[in-house]
C-alpha cells in the first residue's frame, strides 16, 4: 500500500476529526455548566447545514425574498440562528428541568431532535441535497508537496482548528473564561460573588449550539445536506465523548481529532470496520480506563 494513499486517508480522516472535535467540544462546554447531554446537538448541526442551503437557494422560492446568502454569509448567520434557537430552548424548557434528574434533559433534547429531523424530512430528500454554494475561491485542489488535496477540505480543517483552539484559549486563558470555569466548579458560590450564573448557563448553551451550527455549515459543501446527517454523527460523537471524558476542553478537541484520524486510517486497512472502530475503541477504554482518557468523573 502506498504511503500516498495512507496520507490521503489520514487527511480525510482529520477532516472528519475536526467535525468530531467541534461537536464534542460543544457537548463538553454544555455539559460542564448544565450537566446535561444535548441530544439535539446533531440536529443543530443539521440545522446549520440546512440554513446554509436554504439561504443560498430557497429564500426566493420559499419566502419571496430576493436575497441570496452565500457561504461566507452563512458562516455567520447559521451559527447565530442556531445559537438563538439554543438560547430559546434553554430559557423556555431546559431551565425548568434543572432541578430534576439529568436524564430528563437528555430525553427533552431527544424529543427536540425528533421534531427537527421530522420537520426537515418533510421538505427535503432523506438521501441528501448537494449544497451548491461552495465559494469559487475555495474550489479546486492544492498541491501539498506529497499529494493534491481539495482546497475546500483544507480550508474546513484549518478553520475548524482555529475555532476549536480559540474556544479553548477563551475558556482557559481569559478573565471571562475563568468566571465560566468558576461557574462549572461551584455555581452557588459563583452566584454569591455576584456573577450572573443563569445568564452564563443560557449563553453557554447558545454557544455550544452555535458551534454545532457552524460545523453544519462547514460540512454542507462536503457531504450532501440531509435530515439524517446529524443523527448518525451524534452517536459517534457520544462515543468520542465517552472515550475522551468531558472533564477537559482540550481533551474533547484532541480525542475528536485523533478518533477521526483513526477512523480514516481504518478505511485504508480494513474498510468494513470503519463505521464501528470508534465504538470498539470505546469498549477498550471502558475496560481499561473507565473514566475516559482525560476524564474526571462527575
Amino acid at each position: 500500500m502506498s504511503m500516498q494513499v495512507i496520507l490521503a486517508q489520514a487527511l480525510l480522516g482529520l477532516n472528519v476529526g475536526v467535525f468530531y472535535a467541534m461537536l464534542s467540544l460543544g457537548l463538553a462546554v454544555i455539559f460542564g455548566l448544565l450537566n446535561i447531554i444535548n441530544f439535539a446537538h446533531g440536529a443543530m448541526y443539521m440545522l446549520g447545514a440546512f440554513i446554509a442551503l436554504i439561504g443560498y437557494s430557497l429564500l426566493e422560492q420559499w419566502f419571496g425574498i430576493s436575497l441570496q446568502v452565500g457561504f461566507w454569509g452563512s458562516l455567520l448567520v447559521a451559527p447565530l440562528l442556531v445559537g438563538l434557537l439554543g438560547i430559546l430552548i434553554e430559557r423556555t424548557m431546559l431551565k425548568r428541568l434543572a432541578d430534576l434528574d439529568h436524564i430528563y434533559g437528555l430525553l427533552l433534547t431527544f424529543g427536540i431532535t425528533l421534531i427537527l429531523q421530522g420537520l426537515f424530512a418533510n421538505y427535503f430528500n432523506v438521501s441528501g441535497t448537494p449544497y451548491p454554494g461552495q465559494p469559487e475561491s475555495l474550489s479546486g485542489v492544492v498541491n501539498l508537496g506529497f499529494m493534491y488535496f481539495p482546497t475546500y477540505r483544507l480550508f474546513a480543517i484549518v478553520f475548524s482548528l482555529v475555532v476549536c483552539f480559540a474556544t479553548w484559549y477563551f475558556i482557559e486563558h481569559t478573565k471571562l473564561g475563568s468566571r465560566l470555569r468558576a461557574g462549572v466548579e461551584n455555581p452557588n458560590l459563583t452566584q454569591a460573588f455576584g456573577l450572573n450564573v443563569p445568564l452564563m448557563v443560557t449563553l453557554t448553551f447558545g454557544f455550544g449550539a452555535a458551534l454545532a451550527g457552524l460545523a453544519g455549515v462547514l460540512a454542507a459543501p462536503i457531504y450532501s445536506v440531509s435530515p439524517l446527517m446529524g443523527a448518525d454523527l451524534i452517536i459517534v460523537v457520544f462515543a468520542v465523548v465517552v472515550i475522551g471524558g468531558m472533564g477537559s476542553i482540550m481533551g474533547a478537541i484532541l480525542s475528536g481529532l485523533a478518533l477521526g484520524l483513526i477512523e480514516g486510517l481504518t478505511k485504508v486497512f480494513y474498510p468494513p470496520a470503519a463505521s464501528t472502530v470508534i465504538f470498539f475503541l470505546m469498549v477498550l477504554v471502558l475496560l481499561f480506563r473507565p473514566a475516559g482518557l482525560f476524564g474526571k468523573e462527575k
Binding site: V236, V242, F279, V283, P290, E297
Partner: peptide, 24 residues
C-alpha cells in the same frame, strides 16, 4: 461495560454499543 459509567454516560455508552449491533 455500561455499568462502569454512571448517569448520563450510561445512556451514551448503551447507545454507542447498540450502534455496533445496528451496523453488524
Amino acid at each position: 461495560l455500561a455499568i462502569r459509567r454512571q448517569g448520563i454516560y450510561f445512556a451514551m455508552v448503551t447507545l454507542a454499543l447498540a450502534q455496533i449491533i445496528y451496523f453488524l
